[in-house]
Design a protein around this nucleic acid. Structure first.
Length: 280
DNA sequence: TTCCCCAGCCGTCAGGCGGA
DNA sequence: TCCGCCTGACGGCTGGGGAA
């Protein structure tokens, strides 16, 4: 039975109580009724403790289960596969990722493409692409993005090299036709001269090659920390999603085993009736 | 209406694990 | 050994539901 091949799923008793643990115990109990002989094996407590101290990832568990049991769906490695990439949206591999003071993420790809991701959105659905037609090659070690949450006129601004700003344009008047067609409802942006020098809420980030002063080092450290937190945030979300899927899997497994158990009990009763006819 | 409780979600930290 | 990923643990926030 698959469950016995994956007894790593059982957790250490000192770990926090989760509903999934109840499910695991329930599944284990039901499964043991099916294979009591197999479950009678004695495990050394120390060894068991070692094994249980660290459970493998939910993705790994479910994928292993799915290879054993055809009915169990696999968790995809890449989220983008299951959510799908919106067609015609310019996707570039980001080379630098920055988080703004408002929580948005700005990814700068090679060639000057800027992708803006809203924190409230999932995955690529929140990505907004901007083609920097006049960006050219950035100066060495001088990739600097300055972001202002809102300028005086209520629009969003991104300060890019060359004393220019990228301004969110909700009217989409100046957006290139191919961009407008590609982005659908997404806001478009245009390049302007800055309306203010450095508005409130500006966040600056510099590439490692340009670090000289302690202040720049501190900024770099801050940027690294923000990046790490951002990654961990996404990882935590993904982990919770996998955990939910895992619990659902266990729930369905419980249902299946309960039905199976019921059938076996009925079958046993029938066989008992057949094999031991009444003697009166 | 206000207060309390609970469940769910999220961000962050810490630590283990696996690959380079 | 180092680094990135994964996940348990913790605390905060929020919304729903029930009692006063």
């Amino acid at each position: 039975m698959w469950w016995h091949q994956h007894n790593l799923c059982f957790r250490h008793p000192i770990e926090e109580d989760y509903s999934s643990e109840d499910l695991e115990q329930k599944v284990a109990t039901i499964a043991e009724t099916d294979e009591s002989a197999e479950s009678e094996g004695v495990i050394d407590p120390h060894k068991r403790r070692e094994i249980l101290s660290r459970r493998p990832s939910y993705r790994k568990i479910l994928n292993e289960l799915s290879s054993d049991v055809p009915g169990i769906p696999k968790i995809e490695e890449e989220k983008s596969e299951e959510e799908g990439t919106p067609p015609n949206i310019a996707m570039a591999v980001p080379t630098s990722i920055y988080q703004t003071s408002t929580g948005q993420y700005i990814a700068i790809a090679q060639g000057g493409a800027i992708q803006i991701s809203n924190p409230g959105s999932d995955g690529v659905q929140g990505l907004q692409a901007l083609a920097m037609t006049n960006s050219g090659a950035p100066p060495p070690g001088a990739t600097i993005v300055q972001y202002a949450a809102q300028s005086a006129d209520g629009t969003q601004q991104f300060f890019v090299p060359g004393s220019q700003v990228v301004v969110q344009d909700e009217e989409a008047e100046l957006a290139p036709s191919h961009m407008a067609a590609a982005t659908g409802d997404m806001p478009t942006y245009q390049i302007r001269a800055p309306t203010t020098a450095l508005p409130q809420g500006v966040v600056m980030a510099a590439s490692p090659g340009s670090l000289h002063s302690p202040q720049q080092l501190a900024e770099e450290a801050t940027r690294k920390r923000e990046l790490r937190l951002m990654k961990n945030r996404e990882a935590a979300k993904e982990c919770r999603r996998r955990k939910k899927e895992y619990v659902k899997c266990l729930e369905s497994r419980v249902a299946v085993l309960e039905v199976q158990n019921k059938k076996l009990i009925e079958e046993l009763e029938t066989l008992k009736d057949i094999c031991s006819p009444k003697t009166d």
